[in-house]
Every structure is written in C-alpha cells, then in structure tokens.
C-alpha cells in the first residue's frame, strides 16, 4: 500500500504542474489583453497599464511569469485584488462557506443516492423501482439552475418552508435547499450507478455460493452484494466532491451564497484575472487530491488494483 501511495503521489506532480500551467496559460497568454480588460470601457492609460504589467510580471517572458506565479502560490501569496485586498484573505473568507455547502450536498447525494439505488436495484421491476428510475432520469435532464428555480419557487416562495436566498453568513438551515439542489444531479447518477452495479452482482457466482453455504438473505445482501457494488460508487463520490466545489458556482449564484463560486463569478464580472486564476488553481488542487484519496480508497476496497 505504501509503495502504491508513493507512486500515485509521484504521478500527481506532473499533473498538478501541467494543470496549473494550462490554467495560467489560458488566463494570461490567450489573445485578449487582461490588462486592457481591467479598464473596461474606459480608454487605456498606458502608464497605469505598464505599472500593472510590471506588478503582475506581465512584462516578463511567459515561462518566467508562470514560475514566479508558482513560487508565490507555494507560499499562498496570490497577490492583491484591485481594491488592494490580499486575494488569499478573500478566498479564505469564501472557502469555508463552499466547503460547508459541498459537504452537505455530498452527504445528501451519498445517503439518498445509495439508499434509493439499493432499493431500486434489489427490487428490480417493482413499481417503486420504475418511479425511482424516472425521477432520477428527470433530475439528470433538468439543469441545476432550473432545479434551483423550481426549489426556490415551490419550497421558498409558495410553501415558505425554506429561505429563498441564503445571504452572506448562512447557517445549516439556510444551506439545506441549496445543498439538495447542488447534489440532485449527482444523486441521480449514484442511483443509476448503484442500481446497475447491484443488478450485475446479484446473479454472480459468489452470491450463489454465499447462499449455498446457508447465509441469511440479509447477510448476503449487505456483506456481499452491497459491499461489492459500492466500489464504483465510492469512486464516483470521491471524484464528485471535487466537482461539487467547482459546480457550486451556479447554485451559489441562484441562492446568493457568498462562497467560492460567487467570488469567482464576481471576479469574472470585474475582470480580476488574478483572483480567477488563483481560485481555479486551488479548486483544481482540491480535485486532484480528492482523486488521490479515491484511488487510495479504491485500492483498500479492491486488492486487485494495488498489484496491477
């Protein structure tokens, strides 16, 4: 296991370097001048532009720019916003909100996804299996922002169960509906995934063996069928935790939650390329680390992976 972990961490390094380079190149090296974009509709003041270029090292060759950015990023120094706030303190304020939202969505999709998926997979062909399947298909087809509006309108405006928007310092209850909306699409995927895994595992030989040796139905279901069906579900869940943080942008926008997604969106509107690149870099890191944790879990659950 230790050897496998080491190998995976070493493999991660080129991916992280490549990803940050790609994001950096996309933001700063594409046609379209980020410094000019800062001026918006106003005429470009060359002296100020030159000063900004020097400040962000934009006057240096691209690869030097990238290395300087990387060096600063290692010490969590991402520079300042236009209003003079350090980027990292803005991010530090927004991150906990998004982490809270993403974790709540994660728990929601994991619990309900697995439970409904298991019911559906174990009782294939029953009427509630069909209902669960149709609902999950609908949730996948309806984009998050539409689910969000429907939730807001029905549960917030009409029934007044949940607050319509969350605001700047949201509590558990404020985030409940946004978390359900954020997790709904992934929940539907988990339902479908667990259902198909369970139905491929039920006719397997090892299940028959377990029954043949006299195990009770409950034991066979929980210790053999469900346990083996959960391996791909765990992989999906782990990858999704990283994706939820990035995908929170739409949900945060709809429910007015001041998290990372909201911050990214506002930064894009204001043209704060520095903030955008910092957030995307951090989120990509979260995503890569989540994938690493998933691979570890995967190796722990399925010994065949370790020796491959």
């Amino acid at each position: 296991m230790g050897k496998y972990l080491l190998r995976r961490i070493l493999q991660m390094i080129p991916v992280v370097l490549g990803t940050t380079l790609l994001v950096y190149a996309l933001v700063f090296a594409l046609p379209g001048d980020p410094v000019k974009a800062m001026f918006g509709d106003k005429p470009v003041n060359e002296a100020v532009a030159a000063q900004i270029r020097a400040e962000y090292n934009l006057d240096k060759p691209f690869i030097i720019q990238y290395l300087l950015f990387l060096k600063n990023a290692l010490t969590l120094n991402f520079g300042e916003t236009f209003s003079g706030q350090p980027v990292i303190s803005e991010i530090a304020r927004a991150f906990p909100v998004t982490i809270k939202l993403a974790l709540m969505a994660f728990c929601f999709e994991a619990i309900f996804g697995v439970v409904f998926g298991a019911i559906s997979g174990l009782k294939k062909g029953k009427w509630y299996d069909s209902v669960i399947l149709i609902v999950s298909l609908l949730l996948i087809s309806v984009p998050t922002f539409v689910t969000g509006f429907v939730g807001q309108y029905v549960l917030g405006v009409q029934l007044r169960i949940f607050p319509v928007t969350a605001g700047s310092n949201p509590g558990f209850f404020d985030l409940l509906m946004p978390a359900m909306v954020l997790g709904s699409v992934s929940m539907a995927y988990i339902i479908r995934l667990s259902r198909s895994e369970i139905s491929t595992n039920i006719p397997q030989d090892y299940v028959r063996t377990a029954r043949a040796k006299g195990m009770s139905n409950t034991s066979v279901t929980f210790r053999h069928i469900l346990r083996n069906s959960m391996i791909p579900v765990v992989t999906y869940l782990g990858q999704d935790l990283g994706a939820l943080m990035g995908g929170a942008m739409v949900t945060e926008q709809i429910f007015n939650i001041h998290g990372v997604g909201y911050l990214t969106y506002q930064s894009i509107l204001k043209g704060e390329a520095n903030m955008v690149v910092s957030i995307v870099t951090l989120l990509t890191l979260v995503f890569v680390v989540c994938n690493l944790v998933v691979d570890m879990l995967y190796a722990a659950l399925d010994p065949r992976i370790r020796y491959a």
Partner: peptide, 21 residues
C-alpha cells in the same frame, strides 16, 4: 498525461476561464 491534465480541470471552471477572455 495530457489527458490527465485536462481531466483535472472541472469543465465549468475551465470554460469560464477561457470564455471571459
């Protein structure tokens, strides 16, 4: 490895970074 690098960027975020240009 190139595929891994692109895979590590969530689609929505990557698209936003490019499109704002």
């Amino acid at each position: 490895r190139i595929v891994d690098i692109f895979m590590a960027i969530p689609m929505l975020l990557g698209a936003i970074v490019v499109l704002q240009m």
